[in-house]
Design a protein around this nucleic acid. Structure first.
Lengths: 215, 215
DNA sequence: CGCTATTTTAAACAGGTGTTTAAACTAGTT
DNA sequence: AACTAGTTTAAACACCTGTTTAAAATAGCG
């Protein structure tokens, strides 16, 4: 395997588990059995390495997601919200084929990206892969036309939060759940559970926003 | 103001904005106009300072939340999920009185705590303030008795994710929303919007979990 | 005042960070 | 075999990290 890929693989799991700030280049290079300077030689800087790790996933995910959502939008029958969110399952689980546990690390990394590094990764994703957001918005708009653009904006970000946050701590949560409820489950099981939740959340009836009464 | 409080105030906003790992003691102490060694003198270590910052909020929040939820549980009429989540509003907004911008920083800090520092803060909160979780579970159980304990567990963590994640990036989101939709809003407005979402999510109909079909 | 206990201060500590350098090594090509 | 371009290597760079030290300053009290 090439040095570049060895670095990407090691950085992937370390970033997911310890965050971008929490992972040093020395940890990455020693995990990858590679010289320290190799990161700067092949990627230029740590920041560029972070981008490369994310791009590896996004380049695989983005087109699959786009086609799944546009298929849904072009269908005769209006899709349900549940179907819109289910459209994410196949592209996400496909990441597992091209890399073991790809789904979980990708979603963990996404969560890291939102909280670490003061949002530079959010900037990177929204500018480099804007289609993912616009396609998603379109699909939701078809499934629930009464929702205003602003409501969609907020509810989609709530959904991002639910997914990303859940997945970034999914290992710990699965551990707790298996202890407390004696019920075996994995990432796919968590996804099965979260979809009805976010579908119902996005599909919540529209409530007029009024000033808070703190009775 | 005492040195201890000057440090707590400075650490509060810096931790919220840049994360625990991303904030150095030198940033904190220079922001607080205090000598570097003061942190270790008054708190012992950076880790203890983090705990102190969180405890300041939790000690204020926990009893208010407990009484609000138990009031709801003891009422004759069965509460709705919307009411259960609304019970959080007053205790959360009360944090604003006891410290300026208290609400926003607290939820941001909560978000940091889940992703930074490999979950030591989650351990701290669940062991030091377990009532918050059990009371919440009880209230949801009354409002939606058909939900199994395991389903409640998952949906409450989904809700945590929604809230915490949204609030930890609330500033950025509010900025975007104001640009795109020309609609002034603040933290309270976001809370107004997120409650119908999470109430609908937790109240989603129960779906039999089956093995995924990836057709 | 003088004594004590608490607090503040500047300096140093040992170790970790991302990045750069220049020399060594490894193919591939003529 | 000799030259070249690409890659790897160990060492050093300058800077930042949390923590500790011992001296200086401050406050509280008899």
């Amino acid at each position: 395997m090439s040095t570049k890929n060895k670095i990407l693989d090691a950085a992937d799991v370390l970033f997911a588990n310890k965050g971008f700030n929490g992972t040093s280049l020395r940890e990455i290079t020693s995990q990858a059995n590679v010289n320290l300077a190799a990161v700067n030689y092949h990627f230029g800087s740590k920041k560029e390495l972070i981008k490369a790790v994310m791009s590896r996933y996004m380049d695989e995910l983005s087109p699959r997601l786009e086609s799944a959502l546009s298929l849904l939008c072009q269908a005769e029958r209006k899709p349900t919200l549940h179907e819109v969110f289910s459209a994410f399952i196949e592209p996400l689980l496909h990441l597992n084929e091209f890399k073991e546990n790809g789904t979980s690390t990708f979603l963990q990394l996404l969560g890291r990206g939102y909280t670490d590094s003061q949002g530079f990764l959010r900037w990177f994703l929204t500018t480099q892969y804007p289609n993912v957001f616009t396609n998603f918005t379109k699909a939701v708009n078809i499934a629930y036309p009464e929702l205003s653009a602003e409501e969609i904006f907020w509810r989609l970000h709530f959904t991002m939060g639910t997914i990303v946050f859940t997945m970034s701590s999914s290992e710990a949560l699965i551990d707790i759940a298996q202890n407390d409820f004696d019920n075996k489950l994995d990432i796919a099981g968590v996804i099965e559970r979260v979809i009805p939740y976010v579908a119902a959340g996005v599909g919540a009836p529209i409530t007029k926003i009024e000033p808070l009464s703190l009775g």
